[in-house]
Amino acid sequence: MPIDTIVFDFGGVLIDWNPRYLYRKLIADEQQMEWFLSNVCTDEWNVQQDKGRSFAEATSVLQNQFPDHKDLIAMFYGRWEEMLNGEISESVAILRELKDKHYKLYGLTNWSTESFPIAKERYEFLNLFDGILVSGEEKLIKPDPAIFHLLLKRYNLTPETCVFIDDNLNNVKAASSLGFTAIHFQSGALLRDKLVELNVLADENVA
């Protein structure tokens, strides 16, 4: 079946988000910063907010667990915008090309419902999408197959006509198992090569 739809993850694919952009300002020693992000404000803790837990509850729970780091914990969502380092320009250029070629574009992102409006306001290219599914709003999260099924149902999509792009290999494997053509994002250049292989984009090197 011909590909007519491209589904993008956002963080790490189109948007450069990383808590280190903030915490390097707050913790001078790199090893101490890495310890803090590995043991206190962990990825596993942050994922709960992507599943729908409120920032207030998440912060309170962690501050009670690590009272010595109360102020640093408060900064995670208090200064969350400082974790955004701009768009990933090569990927956004590809997104615009796909829009110009009239592919249907959808977003499937693990993102908190409280912080996603900040990104939506900051990055105008998010308006290019025909629809966006945000995990925090749906209380479902990748790689759970349920959120992929919800995407397909809500927008009347067929997985065999969709390319799914994500920087998280577990999410890529989940999409692939459901029939998507799934691409593990590593760089804009490699993404373009993959889309050329799939005849979604034209080879720039061919005159």
Results as ranks from 00 to 15, higher is better:
F125Q: 09
F180E: 08
E90V: 00
F129V: 00
I132L: 15
R24K: 13
G11L: 14
D130L: 00
T59I: 13
W80D: 12
N168H: 05
D144H: 05
E124R: 11
T158W: 00
D29E: 06
V172L: 10
N171Y: 02
W35K: 09
L98Q: 14
L95G: 12
E138T: 01
T42C: 13
W35Q: 10
V172H: 03
V47F: 14
V13D: 06
T59D: 11
G52N: 04
Q63G: 09
L37V: 06
D144Q: 06
D193C: 01
I94K: 02
F125W: 10
K194Y: 08
G136I: 05
Q186F: 01
L157M: 10
E197F: 04
S115Y: 15
S177K: 13
E124Y: 03
F10D: 07
D167M: 02
L72A: 12
V200K: 12
I183L: 10
N156F: 01
L128K: 03
I141M: 09
S135Y: 02
T42F: 13
V47G: 03
M1K: 07
I183S: 07
D4K: 11
E204T: 14
E121I: 01
G131N: 01
E97V: 04
I94E: 04
A189R: 09
D50W: 02
T158L: 10
L198W: 08
C162S: 15
R96G: 05
I27H: 12
E138M: 03
S91Q: 04
K70H: 12
G179T: 05
P67V: 05
L169Q: 15
M33Q: 15
E137V: 04
P117Q: 09
L84W: 07
T158D: 08
D144N: 10
P143Y: 02
E44L: 07
Y123L: 05
T113G: 01
N171P: 12
V196C: 02
A56V: 14
G179K: 01
L37T: 11
G52V: 05
H102T: 13
F66M: 09
N85L: 10
D50N: 14
F116S: 04
E160I: 02
E90I: 00
V206P: 01
L169V: 15
K120G: 03
P117D: 07
D9W: 04
A207I: 07
G131D: 09
D167Q: 07
A207M: 09
S89C: 08
A119W: 03
D50R: 06
L201H: 03
G12S: 05
F148R: 04
K120V: 02
G11T: 13
S89H: 15
P145L: 10
Y77C: 01
D16K: 09
S187N: 10
Q186H: 03
Q65W: 02
L108Q: 06
F66W: 12
I94R: 08
I183Y: 08
S112K: 09
L150V: 01
H149W: 04
R24F: 02
A189I: 11
F8W: 11
W17R: 12
N110A: 07
L152E: 03
E90N: 02
S115R: 13
E87T: 13
S176E: 13
V172F: 02
A28P: 00
V200E: 08
N18K: 14
T59E: 15
D16I: 00
F55V: 08
Y23T: 06
V196T: 07
I73K: 15
G78T: 14
T161E: 11
A119P: 01
I141A: 11
